[in-house]
Design a protein around this nucleic acid. Structure first.
Lengths: 145, 145
DNA sequence: ATATAAAAAGATAAAAAACTCTTTTATTTA
DNA sequence: TAAATAAAAGAGTTTTTTATCTTTTTATAT
């Protein structure tokens, strides 16, 4: 088990892929995306459908259609993707699974886990979807395997 | 989805509970543990069985039997519990789910996620199972809900 | 020895997550 | 306007996780 669900992992890889492949205004098809980020195609299709419905990515049907990400969405934080698919829990949940864990009613790990949560939150809020376009184009970063 | 599985969450709460309830050499039954940490009793039984089999906690059958944790195990890091149930992934896995992500072949989140992983690792390795006994007895910490 | 208490083991069930397949709808281009 | 393309939608299936139930084994106290 990772920190994020498989769904979320595929989604993060996919949006970074789409972002760097469509900066020229073109679109990229599900087949290419799935291949290049090494994910099951029909499953990824479902995920991108959901993101598209929520307006976090854009899509066009038909010939020359596919997925792309507009200027506004390129500037959105990665946190928006995570929230859309995995919910808020990662940003606020108790490390030991307690529903009412808080400053005044803390679990044993509360203080230490808070630091971790904050760091995850920080990472996801400061990272934008378009942030790695250059490095991906230059082949400095990987999204596959 | 939290950072740890439900299994692991229940386990962490349970070992802290058992630890602080058996410092006098007594044992505590599954029913009490389940009630006090707010977990499904038969499911928790399975988890404790596993931990007992792996020698991370101790148990005695029959009247006046139950679970306890010996001196040696009280000093073990919480990481041992997590590893026994959730495996190594949390300590080494890539944030985006890539199997071959590394320094030389990094995913976009590699650097930032490494900090998070390190902090989780640090927390789990420096926290011991018996560490909160005092504060739990004094009611300063909660394991329930 | 026997009764009893309590965990271990094994088998099963329910729910959630991950994944697949088929049909429909929208768009383009010939 | 027909054919082709590509995503959307809907309806499964499989696998994993979470949870339950029943029977067996072991230890203890009487």
């Amino acid at each position: 088990m990772g920190v994020f669900s498989k769904t979320c992992e595929y989604a993060m890889r996919a949006v970074f892929y789409i972002a760097h492949r469509t900066i020229d205004g073109s679109r990229v098809g599900i087949k290419e995306i799935a291949e290049q980020i090494d994910s099951p195609e029909p499953f990824l299709a479902k995920i991108l459908q959901e993101l598209s419905r929520k307006g976090l990515i854009q899509s066009v049907k038909g010939p020359n259609g596919g997925f792309y990400i507009d200027e506004i969405c390129l500037k959105r934080p990665l946190a928006d993707i995570v929230t859309a698919l995995d919910g808020e829990e990662i940003f606020s949940g108790c490390g030991m699974g307690l529903a009412h864990c808080s400053e005044t009613n803390p679990c044993p790990l509360h203080k230490e886990f808070k630091k971790i949560r904050n760091q995850i939150t920080q990472m996801l809020h400061t990272t934008t979807i378009g942030q790695f376009n250059k490095d991906l184009l230059l082949g400095h970063l990987t999204l596959k395997k």
